[in-house]
């Protein structure tokens, strides 16, 4: 990033450094949320529909994990992916893949917990009707996920908000490598440490604008979807 440039200037002049950072931020955080959703939605549905011993404590733990400290998740994933760690042979530490993986772990409890709540509420409404129609367990999960899709969008947004805003995991497992693993939040941390507070704040505003943009798109999709499918 050119020294002395303001964030506004960089946005207006299409600074390639800024745009690659923005692109990476979106790519990593959206991928992480997608990955967490692929695993977390069925898991949340499972927790909502199936009663088994230890389910209560598990739900409490997952709810608590919504507030996992990013640094701790980052450190755990770092130790896992480090060459000296159990998954070191993958060689993905300090890459965007590692950041996606770490953020997905961070976001997973949010997705599972909120999806469980949404689906449990929906299940209370649908139980008799689906049972009367003879729908099996897999069909129930699919139906509830699909019919809960508009509420589940909010779940995704909560996950995205958390991923896009955090610096702890991506700093540790990504390494903040210029042009490769530098994201909005780690760039902001770096500019702060360089004492360029106006640029840091400017980048912060860009990040907030991005998050608002993603939320606005999701809201629009939800509105249109609800109008068309109720």
């Amino acid at each position: 990033m050119p020294a002395g440039a303001s964030a506004l200037e960089m946005v207006l002049t299409g600074d390639p450094g800024l745009y690659s950072i923005v692109g990476l931020s979106l790519y990593v955080s959206l991928s992480a949320v997608a990955l967490a959703a692929i695993v977390g939605f069925p898991l949340g549905a499972f927790l909502a529909l199936v009663r088994f011993p230890g389910r209560g404590p598990l739900v409490v733990v997952i709810n608590a994990f919504m507030g996992l400290p990013p640094v701790v998740v980052g450190l755990a994933v770092f130790l896992l992916l480090s060459r000296s760690g159990p998954l070191g042979f993958l060689g993905i530490l300090f890459t965007p893949r590692a950041m996606i993986f770490a953020q997905a772990l961070l976001v997973l409890p949010i997705i599972v917990a909120l999806a469980r709540q949404t689906i449990e509420d929906l299940w209370a409404e649908y139980r008799d009707e689906l049972t009367a129609m003879g729908i099996g367990p897999a069909g129930r999960v699919a139906t509830l996920l699909w019919d809960g899709r508009f509420s589940l969008v909010t779940t995704l947004l909560a996950g995205f908000g958390r991923a896009a805003a955090e610096v702890g995991t991506v700093m540790i497992v990504g390494g903040n490598i210029d042009g490769f693993t530098r994201m909005m939040t780690t760039a902001i941390a770096l500019e702060t440490s360089k004492g360029d507070l106006p640029l840091a704040i400017g980048l912060g505003l860009v990040l907030i604008t991005l998050v608002i943009g993603v939320n606005a798109i999701a809201w629009g999709v939800r509105r249109v979807g609800e109008l068309r499918a109720g």
Binding site: I38, P42, A138, V141, A142
Partner: peptide
């Protein structure tokens, strides 16, 4: 079945 597909 659905779960398995998603995990895959």
């Amino acid at each position: 079945m659905l779960n398995r597909r998603l995990i895959f």
